[in-house]
Design a protein around this nucleic acid. Sequence first.
DNA 1: AACGGAACCTGAAAGC
DNA 2: TGCTTTCAGGTTCCGT
Length: 257
Amino acid sequence: MPELPEVEHARGYLARAIEGKKITATKVHDARIAKGVTKLAGRQVLSVERKGKWLKMPLDDGRAIFGHLGMTGHWTRRAAGDPPVRFERARLDFGAVSMRYLDARLFGRIVVAKTLPAWDELGPDPLADGIDVQRLHDRLSRTKRTVKETLMDQSVLAGVGNIQAIEALWHARILPRRPSKKVTLQEARAIAKGITWSIKRSLAAQTEEELTYVEEGGDNPFKIYGRAKEPCPRCKTTLVRSIIGGRGTVHCPGCQR
DNA sequence: AACGGAACCTGAAAGC
DNA sequence: TGCTTTCAGGTTCCGT
């Protein structure tokens, strides 16, 4: 369920549950999502950090537990004696507190290492670092990709995913298929505002301790994501779905240029 | 070096 | 009803 807002939620949830606590046991149910998860008993989790869609939990031995939620990853707290929950792939126990990692599609990762290239290669985090419009415009101008694909490049801005890119470009009134090179500095400013707006909106929408996601009964909280064939909330033109860079995309042909 | 596309997975929803 | 197809919020690898 991961884009930056969901991962930020997971960060806070994990921090409240295990920050400063000592690992007493671990269990990996499916080795495909875990790497180097060994000899963790006795280690203390110093903090829970986030950059983009990655989580980092530094340990007291110089290593860290890196976590990525993939498409369907999720952490949930249980009691140590509770049975495995559906889709449980791994667990970290802290005495009576047991954190379960669930992941239906197995695209997520739990990696124990001192450093992780994927983490080091991340660009600035829009929430923690803000967005440098000049830098964003520079990155956009240096590639032949579409603006949507460039925005989703994690080295450009860490944490912008399919939803944030779709929503931000709608907010900025720019077509997702526009070549990055043709985005002006002024438009880059609008995109930056759109990204911040989209992230803040998503964060505000998730206040519950245990997140209930969009598809489970709740209404779609997004302006145009998942709303192909519905009228644009701004200009009433019918929203269009297409594929860009292999990812489903929605845009408004009426007010995005 | 950069880019497009396939691969990696499973489940839910839509289509027939 | 039941089988088939489509789709899903991500990353990584591979060939060009």
